[in-house]
Write a protein that binds this DNA or RNA. Structure first.
Lengths: 336, 336
DNA sequence: CTGTTAGCGCCTTCAG
DNA sequence: CTGAAGGCGCTAACAG
């Protein structure tokens, strides 16, 4: 293949050691020698072999991104891609390569987290889309490999997390509905094994409490973030409580499914029923009516996560939680 | 870190070589020895160091995915993510790791393709989102590194491509409109430096010709696949030719932008103007009116691309073009 | 069937 | 300021 450090050394008339010194920014090299070496490097088009370097340095300058069910779930598309972009951009800026892995609960059972990491030789790992009950969740927290969890609020010495403030987000959504005069607000949440679901439930309750509204457990439905779950949730909740005038959904996809079901049932949105979603995916502004929702800065979550990981790697920082702010985006689905 | 092959050898009372033989499925090993070694491997939790292996084998079992402007363009999100999933899944099935890189024309100018590949030590590369006039385009074709282009129909001994039949796709779209009785059909194409744009133009013309309709260059507008380009295109074309009754857009995003502009201008879709898009992104079925479009099986493109690359890698297959079939999806935007 | 011997390309003490 | 020597963990002839 290409020239090696040996070729450079020979052509420059110096030892391999000296070339290595020049390449690694050592200062104790004669300026003339340095220049000569750099010249040859340029001329030969020498590129250091990162594999060899990794072997001796025992670090690869590579971080892994582990995604659960990457291609299975449609809900992921909207959320994950931008996080991925953010991670990728920041990692690249900081000089790290990004390797992608998708897992499933089944695979996680077969291959322990540490085995996985040790074999791939990544310096650190970001994980996204994993649930509280996934095998890796605990392993990640306990392991000695620097890791960052996206949307799972757990920390340890070697484990950080990044998420948007879900309590606050849900609170913003529900307070918005309350301000519009709604008092009977249905909540179609995500599945209970998502950390975000628990937090959003907290925000929903907090908003009710602060407004002095009663908590009615019959107004809550647990779906799986997918579009169809929205419709199912709406019907289930309305069947039991026909007096609902507003719905808060834990994902935009569910909100869209919910709106479709409402419209199919002859109820107009926002005329009779107000709707707020969560995420602000691209579609949110394109559907009719356009969706009032809670925006998460997904790209920034990715960037922040990558940066947090690399700081742990390079400065032995301890794990910590990073919480970004959500934002209420008012559109037509909640207009009076 | 973990145990090395040396530890296994010592514990098993054999030489390193023998352990290596067992690990690499050599047949000339005493069954008893093999068993003993495997036992120790299991017991110690030994995992081979892929970096060391890569160094001596001179191959990393890793493929790169180079994406141009990954996070810049919104148009990419919808298309690229599913291709990515397909690539990732197939690569994983075939035992390869996937490393992600985003480039820009500027970066491509600074770092030649070969330098890039040699430094990262990937065995092969898939490229997506690059334009005909991107620096890498030619380099990829000429280079000795096995590569696969997504949506750029160029081949060489070491370079394959995967795409959906864009001539056919555009033809399906336009023929559908013609069958509905339209004879003055505007075409909002993508930018001319995308290979797909040239081909879709070909399909548009083919459909017209086969139907005996005249070709009017004034009915064609070149956008950049983004939503706003659709609106701009529609207005430009209508200003010149107010008699248009149908539009074909080279992307669903442009189609949505176009529909918005038409509606804002007081023209109903599909009542007065019929619209067909391209891609069948998620949103297509959610907008109002739902979008008639040409579906590309993006996931399959990714899988096929990864597989083609790995076949070149493992069986020294020569580069070839792979063309998948598009499909017309009829929805409301073209209904009479 | 198994061990010995050489590296893969690079970094890093340790002596000059 | 520079070179020689050893080793990272693994594979691959080459002898036995």
């Amino acid at each position: 293949m290409g020239p090696t450090i040996k070729d450079v050394a020979k052509a420059a008339g110096v030892s391999i050691t000296t070339v290595s010194r020049v390449l690694n920014q050592y200062t104790d090299v004669n300026p003339k020698t340095r220049l000569k070496v750099l010249q040859i490097v340029e001329q030969l088009g020498y590129k250091p072999n990162t594999v060899a370097r990794s072997l001796v340095m025992n670090r690869t300058n590579t971080i892994g991104l582990v995604v659960s069910e990457l291609s299975r779930s449609r809900k992921g598309h909207h959320f994950m891609f931008e996080v991925l972009c953010g991670i990728n951009d920041r990692a690249q800026e900081l000089g790290y390569d990004l390797v992608l892995y998708s897992t499933s609960p089944l695979m996680q059972q077969k291959t322990p987290y540490m085995d996985f990491v040790r074999q791939r030789r990544v310096d650190g790992v970001l994980l996204m889309g994993i649930r509280l009950d996934d095998p890796y969740t605990l392993e990640v927290v306990d392991s000695s490999v620097p890791s960052v969890l996206i949307d799972v609020p757990l920390t340890s010495k070697t484990c950080s997390y990044v998420q948007t403030d879900n309590v606050r987000g849900a609170q913003l959504a529900v307070e918005h509905l309350i301000e519009l005069g709604h008092t009977r607000i249905g909540f179609v949440n995500g599945h209970a094994q998502a950390a975000v679901s628990q937090e959003r439930l907290g925000g929903y309750l907090k908003a009710l409490t602060l407004a002095g509204l009663p908590y009615d457990p019959n107004l809550i439905f647990y779906g799986d973030f997918e579009q169809e779950d929205g419709g199912i949730g709406v019907e289930a909740l309305l069947a039991h409580s026909p007096d609902l005038t507003a719905f808060f959904f834990a994902s935009d996809l569910m909100a869209i499914g919910g709106i479709r079901a409402l419209q199919a049932g002859g109820r107009s949105v926002p005329g009779e029923i107000a709707v707020v979603g969560y995420d602000d995916i691209d579609v949110a502004s394109l559907v009719q009516p356009s969706l009032t929702t809670i925006r998460q800065n997904r790209y920034e979550m990715g960037r922040t996560g990558a940066e947090a990981l690399i700081r742990m790697l390079e400065h032995q920082e301890e794990g910590r939680g990073i919480v970004l702010s959500p934002e209420l985006i008012v559109r037509h689905s909640s207009m009076q």
